[in-house]
Design a protein around this nucleic acid. Structure first.
Lengths: 338, 338
DNA sequence: GCAGCGCTGGAAAGCGCTTTCCCGCCACGC
DNA sequence: GCGTGGCGGGAAAGCGCTTTCCAGCGCTGC
């Protein structure tokens, strides 16, 4: 037990140099160290199995090698893809990712940010979807300020307007383009399975979709709201069916919701796409294996994670940068002509 | 900018007490502090917005509030479910989860463990699958030793024999039970899409499956190895079809592989389950939405994550504990009588 | 020949917290 | 009345590192 951790001081003594020199060698400061000493230090460090104490470094430097990542639910493919992108970039930069999950509770987001601040995380990627709730928005904004004032950087995925770097998917444009293509298939009556009305992402996609229908001269859709999850889609689809709407095409604002909706349709004996067409949004990887294959608006999820991590990691200017990524409509077997 | 972080010293001065007292109040040491002072400290801390510096605490206490979680690929539902379980428990315990992804490279696992050690992580959950490669095994074992000697705890999911706490799913038993049930459906010729031959999990499941077939007096299966991924399953299935085996039932050692295999069968016009039955292992959540629904061996993935986190977080005795979780055969639409 | 410079090495002052040690105070027992 | 012990409070010594500051040295340039 307790084979006391090797410290820099031990390495220095062993190598016969000062603490300062050892530190300079082992972390590559701006200062030069003669090759001879440098070698000696490197060698003894190696031989003693020296591992720097990250907490001590963080304390001395007043900045750690931690990058925060806040998501609602890591089992949701949307988030796990973004997480993959973020971790890849962070790990390449020699940083370490701290994963926080909110379970979709806005106050958890604030707590997590505060924890991350306590840990002097260098940066945070907020991948949760923004709500329109005033109170939680302002608490979040306060935490973000506290975080940035302390020298940390914050980037958001798909939630602009917080004064931070942001990766914004073309939610509105994607919804609009999708609506047009669906209308072009000849559908006249649409339904939308929307997310909770306070979620900005859901609202944007819905608004875009409506605009697209309007472009095509099609009547506004029936809108049914549900939770932003697979089960939410399932419930919403049942409700839609119960409403006796005559929709021939339904748009779920999220692929996960669409999956739930398809399950509901299947159970009720509604054939896709013969009886009803259905489309989602995001193009999560699991879509590849659904039958029929789901039409959707493709978002480069992992890449979005990478971009967010990139934004948050390179110093950048003072002002908030925004990177827009376009969604691409992908029609597959789940949507047919009407 | 730089609204210097509030320190304990400032709180103490402001409240008119010593550093020691402030510390004792704000972290609940064994020592008592009079209610009056305590109140004063609490109040000023609140009012100044004091957030303790986690690095400093970690340094002073020589132990942090970090818990490591090492997985191969966070987008794989198997791992993301385990991750969900681990994060839930960790967050409840007021700890913070550090996510590391290996991309299935054993040496990455060692690197990550070393990083985690540098951060003085309190514990680590290794969710990757163990390989049989000697060299990487011993390097990993060395890192694990270093980690535990430094006071950290390590738990593994599904990889026993490393001298650590372990959550072991009934891979062998599950495979065996599945084979029996499948044989009971009347199938005589089986194929198995196995993972890479050096993965212990894959081998165990395969071995169990073979044993089950033997129990039922059925001939040994054709085994095709592929990567432990969706695409690996796809490729393996194609290879199996090309081999002209007369198998009527195929077992993929992983649900993700089974998904890929189903895609391959679909493409080749092989109907499931009419032409061929197929079963997987794990029961990842996405299975709910495949058509036909996939038969599998259900593992309580999130719970396994919770158990692992639980093991690693409560001190426990010195000796390695092992928790076995049983797999439960779930027959669904993808398997039919022959 | 000497002031001045650039460069390398080391001493030491922190970084923000925890915890030991010590001190003074009070209640108690004799 | 005084020694004792318990208890609440504070001073200060670290925890392991980074970084500033200073000392020494060999050069260059006038």
């Amino acid at each position: 037990m307790s084979a006391r951790q090797v410290t820099l001081a031990e390495v220095a003594k062993q190598a016969g140099v000062s603490l300062a020199t050892a530190s300079r060698v082992l972390n590559g400061s701006t200062r030069q160290v003669s090759e001879e000493l440098s070698d000696r230090v490197l060698r003894t460090a190696e031989q003693l199995g020296y591992v720097p104490n990250a907490s001590a470094q963080a304390l001395a430097r007043n900045s750690s090698s931690l990058v925060g990542l806040v998501v609602h639910d890591i089992t949701d493919p949307y988030f796990s893809c973004i997480a993959a992108g973020v971790t890849r970039v962070a790990e390449e930069a020699g940083l370490v990712v701290v994963l926080g999950t909110t379970g979709r509770r806005p106050e958890r987001e604030v707590e997590l940010l505060s924890t991350l601040r306590a840990h002097r995380a260098r940066a945070v990627v907020l991948a949760g979807s923004r709500t329109t709730d005033r109170a939680s928005q302002s608490r979040l904004a306060a935490e973000i300020d506290a975080f940035t004032e302390q020298g940390g950087r914050v980037a958001c995925v798909s939630q602009a307007k917080l004064g931070t770097d942001t990766v914004v998917p073309g939610n509105r444009a994607g919804g609009r383009a999708l609506a047009r293509e669906l209308a072009a298939l000849g559908h006249k009556k649409f339904a939308v399975l929307g997310g909770p009305s306070e979620l900005v992402v859901a609202r944007d996609r819905l608004a875009g979709f409506k605009a697209g229908l309007a472009d095509a001269g099609v009547a506004p859709p029936l809108v049914v709201n549900g939770a932003f999850t697979r089960d939410g889609g399932y419930e919403a689809a049942l409700e839609m069916l119960a409403s006796k709407s005559r929709a021939t095409c339904v748009f779920a604002v999220t692929d996960v919701m669409a999956m739930g909706a398809m399950a509901a349709l299947r159970e009720r004996g509604v054939r896709v796409p013969e009886d009803m067409s259905i489309a989602g949004f995001d193009d999560i990887p699991t879509l590849r294996d659904t039958v029929p294959a789901l039409s959707t608006v493709r978002l480069p999820l992992e890449e979005m994670g990478e971009i967010a991590a990139g934004l948050v990691l390179d110093a950048g200017g003072d002002e908030a940068r925004t990177v827009r990524v376009a969604g691409e409509v992908v029609l597959r077997a789940s949507t047919a002509h009407n």
